[in-house]
Write a protein that binds this DNA or RNA. Structure first.
Lengths: 192, 192
DNA sequence: GTCTATACGCCGATAGAC
DNA sequence: GTCTATCGGCGTATAGAC
């Protein structure tokens, strides 16, 4: 609401976007409000008009990840069959392998960092992760697998794990190779 | 070296141990030198006699992880066959599932955090990760698998991924279930 | 609503007595 | 070698003019 008429996205939106990016690239703890303000082209003092504390900006960043996930799954739901949806999900991950090699999974690294903080935002992050698991589980369920939940955990864990390794070793090729493995794994499961 | 004779472990060792623990539980960025000094029962100012900067303490913590890994693989090498070694490795991971649920993988979360820092310690962390991958690869090689490296990446990534999910969802049961899956996966690979 | 200037606390690091 | 006291800088947050 309340976008001023003849301007680029409102300051609030710019701040959240800058925060998401900075948290991904530098981590929450190393990111200062000055960093975010500069990236969003908003004066430092003015940040506090939109977010009364840094924690509230972190919370907004988590919500942004949640929205992003919802948008993604909505797009994937347009695909005809569940196997295609899962493979498209993997393809999306692999497509981000260069930034993953540099900064890790945008959501995974954030959630991991939140688990070491005092704020209660780790719970919100867990909710988002559960939403992803639920969606993946639904796809495996539509494929007729009774062990859909376990397979969902296996797939998402494989992604998080290859993100960690890709990041630590700075090797996007690792994610490409593991992505290919997961894709043929989906094919094998769907074909059986 | 230079442990004073009739005393508990030297201050340097206590500081490193406290640092490893604090970095795991709170993260590097949130951990202050005062935290470490207190946990090690060393006066704050004295820390700088042993480590001229916080970065050097972080470096020492990475080296400690490296030593810990070497000690582990040495122990596992005493086991008769490679499949048993790999399953013992997994068993060790699962045995740590309660702390993993609370704080994640001690080394994975540290390495991930180092990747967002300016110091060059991410390279040292990558070396340690590579050492683990090399050892696991050797086991798969001894099992006669030509795709030993890919399997090693798959196993370690699975562990890192389930650590992330276990941590975010605060669910040690997830790691137990995935560990069981990996164990029977090893059995299937070794039996074929 | 917007922005500047600044208060205030915390933390890494140092000085220097013992 | 050990420890206390403290400096200096940075980062969150606020006060208050416009």
């Amino acid at each position: 609401m309340t976008d001023s008429p003849s301007q680029r996205p409102g300051k609030r939106e710019r701040l959240v976007e800058a925060a998401v990016r900075a948290f991904h690239e530098q981590g929450v703890e190393k990111t200062t409000l000055a960093d975010i303000a500069r990236a969003a082209d908003v004066p430092l003092g003015n940040v506090y008009y939109y977010f009364r504390s840094k924690d509230l900006l972190v919370e907004a960043a988590v919500e942004a990840h949640c929205d992003r996930l919802t948008a993604l799954t909505n797009r994937l739901d347009a695909l005809p069959d569940p196997a295609a949806r899962l493979k498209a999900l993997i393809e999306g991950w692999v497509g981000q392998r260069e930034t993953a090699a540099r900064f890790g999974c945008p959501f995974g690294t954030l959630a991991t960092e939140l688990d070491k903080r005092d704020d209660g935002l780790d719970l919100a992050a867990a909710q988002v992760m559960r939403a992803l698991l639920d969606w993946v589980e639904r796809q495996f369920g539509e494929l007729g697998r009774p062990d859909a939940r376990a397979l969902a955990v296996e797939l998402v864990a494989a992604y998080q794990g290859m993100s960690v390794l890709t990041n630590i070793l700075r090797d996007p090729g690792l994610m490409a190779a593991q992505g290919a493995r997961l894709t043929s794994w989906i094919d094998a499961l769907a074909g059986s």
